[in-house]
Design a protein around this nucleic acid. Structure first.
Lengths: 356, 356
DNA sequence: GACATTTATGTGCACGTGCACGAAGATACA
DNA sequence: TGTATCTTCGTGCACGTGCACATAAATGTC
């Protein structure tokens, strides 16, 4: 194997100094066409890959990166995404990053709108977005596009935007898989109750819609005869849920299976436990600490994980490498869908163990 | 946050030169007790963490690392482990590593013995071992211990050895989880056929024994009434398997479920397909390309993954960081047990996508 | 005590990139 | 032609560690 090519090697080949090569590599301008073309010619021939270790220690400029996601509490889904983001910054501790977090209420479209308008006015190098509402996100992204500010989505992607990349589960397939799992646990012809979060202003989250679609499609394709009971679930008015649930379980219907398409499965699990309702198989989304607890207790049969730490970590990592090294970016990044049981949950790597 | 502490800072604090600090940090010797103690005192107070980027570019010495595992063919389990190892070396491309691979026949204890004896005589800095046979591995490790050569296990660990670390699934839990999955797919009181690999010299692989134990323990604990049919599986004499299988399926027994505790599940799947035996639920180990194909075709219901790339990657990464930076090592490293279905298999990251 | 040998310590360079600074060359305008 | 302005380009330093080499101190030997 040949010696690794360096900037000075390219400079010598192109008959210029390393400063000029540096300007071309980083698009800094102030280069004559002749010099630029000569250098580009050399770059085509040789496969130059900067030594990232040296780049790292030589870096001087600061980057301002903004992160906006729904609000979150300890142990919740969105906290994991933020943990991943922080881990990425720790890995690149030598890079000077000012990062600022803006959260909004994911059940209130006005909160989102307000936050996004504030963000749109800020000076920044890049943005990481955890989107919920379509229209508001599209509006924000339009402004970002105009200002040539790159942005990356986590958790889900939004149509009619042009992000640098997105890191998300395939929510449709997620619902599809959940249907397969739940139907393997219960007899045919039985009922399945599905809980979905309700939001203000008649808006639904992308994610839940897609999961629901995947779920029903599976049943249809496989001619499953189970009856689906769609139950609303309110995060803002938790007292309503008590009503929905008591309604469901006093309706004399047999409910052998429950599916929760958001991360609040533990809430339902607790209701069942408190009301001594047993023998219900539950499948829920996301490895929140509360959900994991319920899984270990046997209240939940399967938890579906969508690697939130991974999403956050790679969103930030990808952004940094794009900003610093102009590293080419893969746009579509679907994360793994993990099936967790009380048996394999203890080995699940929450990225705290992984580091990277 | 304070400025990061450097070697020269420590040197100044201890009243010595950076060369002496370097010698203490790397245990190079030639340091007076007085100087060593002074430096160690400073090191206790400050939290020195070397800048790995600078370390990386300053590295000069070569390391010789040997890897020994069972033989493998393309797309097979052990190949993934080797892929992970290579990825780690790519990440540390600046480190000069001579690495040499020695494989042995995992079904032949003599082959293993011969290979290990050869390895024991070689000059090296470190070793990564994919063990199969207990006694032979213990013998090799004793010699390594005498020569102070660090070694790391992948795939499984061996008692009575003192490895620097091991990266492995918890095979007992794996079997336990498989039992849970398979019993959820079939009615009570039915038969379950279990395939286990047979080896020369009456030796069994650790892994299979542990998985089988976990499997039967689950059934016992949960008072499952399924009848277990243990079927041998020979890799060396494949024509025997045809016999075992035809025996099984001509015995008039109803076989609604099959569990394969090694990575050759696809072999059984093909037998079923060729003989038009349908409606059998299979759970198999490992994401070999052949197994993945069978999973996608619907011949296999669940595949259990044990992150072989991850194992290889972190085994080599851990070893390198131990050798270079004297980084402290976590001994026990249990990998994730992934449950794959035809739905989520496409999102499974084979590390080719991940890189790191 | 003189010299040889061993042990302990300090000094200085290489690693390759990012970026600041200043020099040189080109162009404009009086 | 002389001066000012803008564009283009080259030079050189910083980053912090690993390690080789030179130097100084301590110890051993007769």
């Amino acid at each position: 194997m040949h010696r690794k090519i360096r900037i000075v090697d390219i400079a010598k080949m192109a008959g210029v100094s390393k400063g000029t090569v540096d300007r071309v590599l980083h698009n800094r301008g102030s280069v004559s066409d002749a010099a630029r073309i000569a250098i580009e010619k050399v770059l085509e021939q040789v496969n130059y890959k900067p030594n990232i270790h040296v780049s790292a220690i030589s870096l001087k400029r600061r980057y301002k990166i903004i992160v906006t996601t729904p609000e979150f509490s300890p142990g919740a889904y969105w906290e994991s995404i933020h943990n991943g983001i922080r881990h990425a910054l720790e890995e690149y501790e030598n890079v000077k990053v000012d990062y600022q977090v803006f959260t909004y209420n994911q059940y209130d479209v006005y909160s989102c709108r307000e936050t996004f308008e504030k963000i749109a006015g800020i000076e920044m190098d890049a943005l990481i977005i955890g989107p919920t509402f379509n229209e508001e996100t599209v509006n924000l992204c339009k402004k970002l596009d105009d200002r040539d500010i790159p942005y990356i989505f986590v958790d889900s992607t939004i149509e009619d935007t042009s992000p640098l990349a997105f890191f998300s589960a395939d929510h449709y397939v997620c619902g599809f898989m959940i249907a397969k799992l739940i139907t393997s646990l219960i007899p045919a012809h039985t009922n399945i109750a599905i809980f979905q979060a309700v939001r203000t202003g008649d808006r639904s989250a992308n994610t839940t819609i897609l999961r629901k679609k995947g779920f029903t499609d599976y049943l249809e394709k496989n001619r499953c005869s189970n009856l689906i009971l769609s139950i609303p679930f309110s995060v803002t008015e938790p007292e309503d849920n008590e009503m929905y649930l008591s309604h469901l379980f006093h309706s004399q219907k047999d409910i052998p299976a429950i599916v929760v398409l958001n991360s609040r499965g533990n809430y339902i699990a607790n209701y069942l436990a408190n009301n001594h309702i047993e023998g219900v198989k539950m499948i829920c989304m996301d490895l929140t600490t509360a959900n994991i607890e319920a899984l270990k207790k046997g209240q939940i049969e399967y938890l579906i994980g969508q690697e939130p730490e991974y999403q956050g970590f790679y969103a930030m990592k990808t952004m940094l490498e794009y900003l610093i090294f102009k590293k080419p970016v893969e746009r579509q990044n679907y994360v793994q869908l993990d099936i967790l049981t009380r048996e394999n949950i203890d080995f699940y790597k929450s990225f705290n163990n992984i580091m990277y």
